[in-house]
Write a protein that binds this DNA or RNA. Sequence first.
RNA 1: GCCGCAAUAGCUCAGUCGGUAGAGCAUUUCAUUCGUAACGAAAAGGUCGUGGGUUCGAGUCCCACUCGCGGCUCCA
Length: 645
Amino acid sequence: MINITFPDNSVKAFEPGVTPLQVAESLSPQLAREVLAASVDGQEWDLSRPITADASLKLFKWEDPEGKHAFWHSSAHLLAEALQELFPGVKFGIGPAVESGFYYDIDPNGHQITAADFPAIEKKMLELARTKHPIVREEISKADALKMFGDRGEEYKCELISELEDGNITTYTQGAFTDLCRGPHLPDTAPIKAVKITSLAGAYWRGDATRNQLVRVYGITFPKQKMLDEYNALMEEAKKRDHRKLGKEMELFAFSQNVGAGLPLWLPKGAALRDRLEQFLRKIQKRYGYLQVITPHIGNKMLYVTSGHYAKYGKDSFQPIHTPEEGEEYLLKPMNCPHHCEIYRTSPRSYRDLPLRLAEFGTVYRYEQSGELHGLTRVRGFTQDDAHIFCAPEQIKDEFLKVMDIIFFIFKALKFENFEAQISLRDPANKEKYIGSDENWHLAEQAIIDACKEKGLNARQELGEAAFYGPKLDFMVKDAIGRRWQLGTIQVDYNLPERFQLEYTGADNQKHRPVMIHRAPFGSMERFVAVLLEHTAGHLPLWLAPEQVAVLPISEKFNDYAREVARQLEESDIRCTVDDRNEKIGRKIRDNQMRRMPYMLIVGEKEQENGEVSVRKSGEGDLGSMKIATFAENLAREVEEMTKF
RNA sequence: GCCGCAAUAGCUCAGUCGGUAGAGCAUUUCAUUCGUAACGAAAAGGUCGUGGGUUCGAGUCCCACUCGCGGCUCCA
């Protein structure tokens, strides 16, 4: 007998060779029906794979990420099997599970696969799932694997196999389909009850733009049809939150073919919203000792040669602007840092001047690839809420912590609770991609790691994600359909001070080199507004809403009183409109609700007589009547509560 | 930049086999003067993204470009 230890530390004895599925059956029939995957001694394990020695066992259901992962991974194989039947001769790349669903990359080998084929693929997948073919794991030698996939002309699989270690190669087979795969998988495909092929896209083989482009078929599956219906409803809902749609509806921003792709036009309401965000951040930054500066939108090309940006990005940027005078070249500024370095250099600096914190809402232009442009989240002209902190090396951690405080405060004020943090480090195997000394890289990376630890921030560390001049800490927020966008960023830079020969005189009367911290809590005004819109579904917090109050007269007889109410509220800096259309009150309420109006004030005979307003709050309904001044005070207090720090 | 898909009224969309362009909402006018989520009637609104081609005839078929969408690659 062998001893199986469960997560609650209880131990039960089983026959050697027992499978996780059999263990589940011995515990409860319901568990056996719901279990999808397992781990044995922390290693992913098929439900049907025998356990031969004492081990600790975890069982995963749909609710567990590991359970979904196995379900979708097996679904990817099912998709491949269906594609193999429908389009004989297609060659397979890779087919993993992803955050919501799975995909398979295929070389269509002459077949034309379009969205019109989706129903047929879905039908075939369900048909195959119902055959309940077991998914069988086999260990295979490298030579046999190469022969097997080579005979079938699976060049992509062979390339993968050739890089694997012999003795460590497994295949999984269900029905007529065998795939190179590490697993784990479901015991059979029967639990896959609902299938949706979601989209089709091109994807480079192994993510390399110089190699073949394969067709990536995306799908999602569920153990119940009802769950697919819910998923579809959720996707519909998400589409309504799309910031591009909301931006148009709410008249915040627009694009024009005549201006150019990726160059947003901020409409009056959007510009006002942006301004409120800027004022908010300015106020905080003033408190933290930042000094506002303003720098031009272009700079001499030599500035970027000095910074190193020209060598790295020159070819892929907007090209230099030539002047009537021969030989002069200017670039649209792609970042603000070199300008701020020049500000630093305008006078000799002492250690007493540090940290020097220069802030600017700086508009920059970057030639992003056309296929990459996306609403306000990826544009060619945008404004960073930028600042550069010049400090002594021993001040880094302290300054870093203060920046984190600002970011946390902003996220809290705007209720971004589900953000993720990522520490982007240098890829030690690929040092030539970066500039700067090993020692400085080490110092900078350690400063970030220590600061996160001190704040108790659970940040993921990613190798190879650093900027070419230094490591960074990024904050990510998800959009309506789960795509991750980077918002706030903090970056440590030993490089630019070196390149610009920045110095300060220390207490020892010697020259020292300062360190630079780049930081942008919003990231960019454009992207931040985009994510804010999706996050709130357009229901912006009261202090940011383009219009805070609509006054709705019951009939035209009360239009004058409504205007008087609006006038008084505007005196208290409340953003107010009067809906004096010739419509019934029900209609006005509906329309203003649809426009996401935070407050509606209904005024008729009663209110006019008493100098009152009848208050209706979005999401809460009728709050009853009160004096105009009382309402104004309440609203001011509500705004104050939201933005105080 | 690459792969695939789309572009019709201000918005959302329909338009069959190639035969003179349609709906709802929004807008304007008229009527109504109304108490907490849509009163009614009428009118106006389109060089079917742009440029070429095929055809007696193109919103519809073909080509190119632009813009957009979903991914990939990239993201200072």
